[in-house]
Amino acid sequence: MSTVAVLVESRDGSVTQPTFEALTLARTLGTPVAVWIGAAPAPAEAARLGIHGAEEVRVVDAGDAARLPAAAAAALGAATADADVVLVISTFVNKEIVTRLALATGAGVVVDASDAEMVDGHVETLQTVFAATWNVRTRIATDKAIVGIRPNTTQASPGETPGAATLVEVAADLPETRELVTGVEPVPAPDGVPLAEAPVVVSGGRGTNGDYTLVRELAELLGGAVGASRDATDEGWISHEHMVGQTGTTVTPALYVACGISGAVHHRGGMQASGTIVAVNIDPDAPIFEIADFGVVGDLGDVIPQAIARIKEVRGS
């Protein structure tokens, strides 16, 4: 049975949902172990990792140095020497870490995967490319495989035989680094569920004219996160953390609602793999309608309030 190490992501000490998704996927590939980089997790968090199948929680307390990719890769490497597969959440930072780990170990890497399975003893992954217009299956030819998995691509579930989640401390020999982190300004955690992990995303673009009131109201009603197009973040209407697109956050929610977004290829690349896509735009020729399951050509100020009222009415009855 293969050992599958999952790099845990946490926010304010709590394990994130994509980590549980990755552990769920890891169970289909072999025996999961969790790798926690930082001071030891609270017992409740370690227990949650166990419930999702982690047999062990390997703790590497690398301190502040772990902000640097080379140091984080050394920490991850120390905890995954025996692992056949290393699974991480596909973030920009983790892609840097696994690149270093791959160079150190000779492992093959696929990032931005939406699925992974064992085929004849090798890991094969699925990805969507070209703004999610193509499906690609890749085989990792090396014995050791590293996979970056996108959030929201596996339904997280508890394991049938929850692991004991034994805490194991791992010492790491961190490399000397030339880089020095001289400033860290924390970004406040978003209200509600983070964009990349949200089951519903409601996004606003140029058509909002900078007023996100309706977008936020609909997002709240649907239990979703608020997204934006590049146009809107460039205008300064909303912060960069909200940008959905190839250079911002890539999302794959069950429902994506595009409000006043034309649907340029850069934006589509960040959301086209969503489950159901709904679009409202005043311009009937907006490219977003080419990929929308349901589109309304109309004014946001008319359409969204009516939709909100209707949903409330049906829920209330």
């Binding site: 902000r67 400033g183 860290v184």
Partner: peptide
Amino acid sequence: LPDAHETVS
């Protein structure tokens, strides 16, 4: 980065 703005030299 999503969780922090870092300055690195």
